[in-house]
């Protein structure tokens, strides 16, 4: 179908042309205020766009500041596994432990213990529970075993008596293995630090036996103390 052939239709179909012309003339007129309304809408759209642009311009600095703050926070916050805590590295930690002069100290402590026992009547005015808590400490300070206590931190959850037995830190007990009268360098690994490994949460049978023994000793000591307190009270009453 050629363009010329189609163009001849325009000349040929006079009736159709006239009819369309009449139809176009009969179309509803354009409202007079339509263009004014259109220009008003254009203005409104422009104002809206300008406001949006202004808002976004005001928003961007805040967003940028927030991003910078977040980045600074991310970079300044140390990661969880920093070598500061020495837990997660898995490397053995060399700890220089000043070995106390145990041979001299132990007799001194025994002497001080005796002195403490002798002082009991003088201190009797203090609450007896406090003394009960202190007494096992004195006893515990003397190392009694070559094995280090591994689960001392969680003893409070196990039992009250065990708590009494395990209050004293195990530094002195570790040093028992080291050569005496020397400054020893002890290599500690994560395994030696009780809280870091889940398997350390459980007690070995030896540890349980030791805990029981310590608890029994503490209990006996407490009974002895109670007896002495009673004696002292009776004496006081008799004097009165």
């Amino acid at each position: 179908m050629k363009e010329d052939n189609i163009d001849t239709l325009r000349q040929q179909d006079t009736n159709l042309r006239d009819a369309i012309r009449l139809e176009e003339e009969a179309l509803p007129p354009m409202p007079a205020d339509l263009n004014a309304r259109l220009m008003k809408r254009v203005e409104e759209e422009r104002a809206k766009k300008a406001a949006k642009r202004r808002r976004s311009r005001m928003l961007w600095p805040s967003v940028a500041a927030a991003c910078v703050a977040a980045l600074i926070a991310v970079f300044l916050t140390p990661p969880k596994g920093t070598p500061e805590d020495g837990m997660s590295t898995g490397k053995p930690i060399a700890v220089k432990v000043e070995k106390p002069k145990t041979e001299k100290e132990v007799p001194q402590r025994e002497a001080s213990q005796k002195a403490t026992e002798a002082e009991v009547p003088q201190r009797i005015s203090e609450p007896s529970e406090k003394q009960v808590a202190e007494q096992p400490k004195v006893k515990q300070s003397t190392p009694t075993t070559t094995q280090p206590l591994l689960a001392q931190e969680s003893t409070s959850e196990k039992s009250a008596t065990a708590e009494v037995a395990a209050v004293e830190p195990s530094t002195e007990q570790t040093t028992v293995e080291a050569p005496r009268n020397e400054t020893a360098t002890v290599m500690l690994t994560e395994r030696d630090i009780p809280i870091t490994r889940p398997e350390n949460y459980k007690y070995t049978p030896e540890e349980i036996a030791l805990l029981k023994q310590q608890a029994n000793e503490a209990y006996l000591k407490w009974v002895e103390l109670e007896l002495e307190i009673s004696k002292y009270t009776l004496e006081k009453m008799a004097q009165k």
């Binding site: 040929q12 179909d13 006079t14 009736n15 159709l16 006239d18």
Partner: peptide, 8 residues
Amino acid sequence: EATLGHPD
């Protein structure tokens, strides 16, 4: 052509 062409 007869319908659309001849003026009427």
